[in-house]
């Protein structure tokens, strides 16, 4: 395993099993995967940026409630933003948007991430790791949503705000509707995790 300047950062979803359950239930379309993945990534980056300041000003006993409060505020701000720019996606995601406050990705960041950090790691290198994890989460959430929508409904519909609501019809009808349900989500993610392990083994990488 490589450490030091170039630590191996496993994908939080496929390697760390972070946020697997909510994604299986809610990321059934490209739009949902995009909004959920982006929300989790933005909230975790914002949390990671605010944590050093919080550590400097708040004593240990107040740190946990304060960080949870900040996390809740970020999640609600994001929910409001989505309600404004993509109301139907926002309503479709329902409680999953405010739940970004305690979503595994936020909790994962609050606990210090998956990759063990070395003492000499600077704030910048820590932030780079967080950014890589956030990007990894976003991309996999987006991919899961896209694959489920394409296979489940035979379409790829872009949210109105991002691509003017472009709609790509891949097949007539729904080729594999099961994949769009939570049950299909679990099965797809389970298989993706197994595939990720095979790829890691071939690349001689190990999840820390």
């Amino acid at each position: 395993m490589k450490t030091g300047k170039d630590p191996f950062v496993p994908n939080p979803i496929l390697g760390g099993l972070v946020g697997v359950f909510p994604l299986a239930a809610a990321a059934y379309s490209l739009a949902n995967g995009l909004v959920l993945g982006l929300g989790a990534a933005l909230c975790s980056i914002a949390l990671a940026s605010l944590m050093p300041a919080l550590r400097a000003i708040a004593p240990d006993r107040l740190r946990a409630p304060l960080s949870l409060g900040i996390s809740a505020a970020l999640a609600l701000l994001y929910s409001d933003l989505i309600a404004l720019v993509a109301p139907v996606t926002g309503i479709g995601l329902g409680v999953y948007l405010p739940l970004l406050a305690v979503n595994s990705m936020s909790m994962h960041i609050l606990r210090g991430g998956h990759t063990p950090l070395l003492k000499e790691d600077s704030a910048t290198s820590r932030m780079i790791i967080v950014l890589r994890e956030a990007m990894g989460f976003f991309l996999v959430a987006l991919l899961i949503g896209a694959v489920r929508e394409a296979a489940g409904f035979g379409t790829l519909v872009f949210p109105a705000v991002f691509a003017n609501g472009a709609r790509l019809v891949l097949t007539k009808g729904a080729p594999l509707l099961l994949l769009a349900s939570p049950a299909g989500g679990f099965i797809l993610i389970g298989c993706s995790v197994a595939l990720y392990r095979v790829i890691l083994r071939k690349a001689a990488r190990r999840i820390p």
Partner: peptide, 16 residues
């Protein structure tokens, strides 16, 4: 590759 978490996630899907 399925040992541990992956097969449990797939099983969760089958129960769902």
């Amino acid at each position: 590759p399925f040992r541990g978490a992956p097969i449990m996630i797939v099983s969760t899907g089958l129960i769902a």
